[in-house]
């Protein structure tokens, strides 16, 4: 991680919020600037750090990138749109 390009590389991630999560954060989406190589688990920690009110829902939510569910180890890329999917209640 000492190369000339890696130390300052940050990626911009838009996090989409729905239902109770949107209400708790007071926003429909949040843009985060994160270190390159950030995983979904790290994004969740970062989000909770910046929006502590989201913690109860963030810890039980699933995450989707490009409308596909991903797991905690999924590596994020610049300009990814990540959706926080709190427990669903359709039907």
């Amino acid at each position: 991680m000492s190369g000339p390009n890696s130390s300052v590389d940050n990626i911009s991630i838009e996090v989409l919020l729905f239902a109770g999560a949107s209400e708790l954060a007071g926003a429909r989406s949040i843009v985060l600037s994160l270190a390159a190589g950030t995983t979904v688990a790290e994004l969740r920690e970062n989000l909770i750090h910046q929006y502590p009110a989201l913690e109860p829902l963030a810890t039980v939510s699933r995450w989707a990138v490009g409308e596909i569910f991903v797991d905690d180890t999924h590596c994020l890329k610049n300009s990814d749109r990540v959706a926080m999917i709190p427990p669903v209640s359709g039907g």
Binding site: A19, G20, V60, S89, G90
Partner: peptide, 18 residues
């Protein structure tokens, strides 16, 4: 399927169901 409902109660305000 990512769909959510919000209850609007007669007496008790609103509540997102998770």
């Amino acid at each position: 399927v990512p769909i959510w409902k919000q209850e609007h109660y007669v007496q008790n305000g609103t509540e997102w169901i998770h």
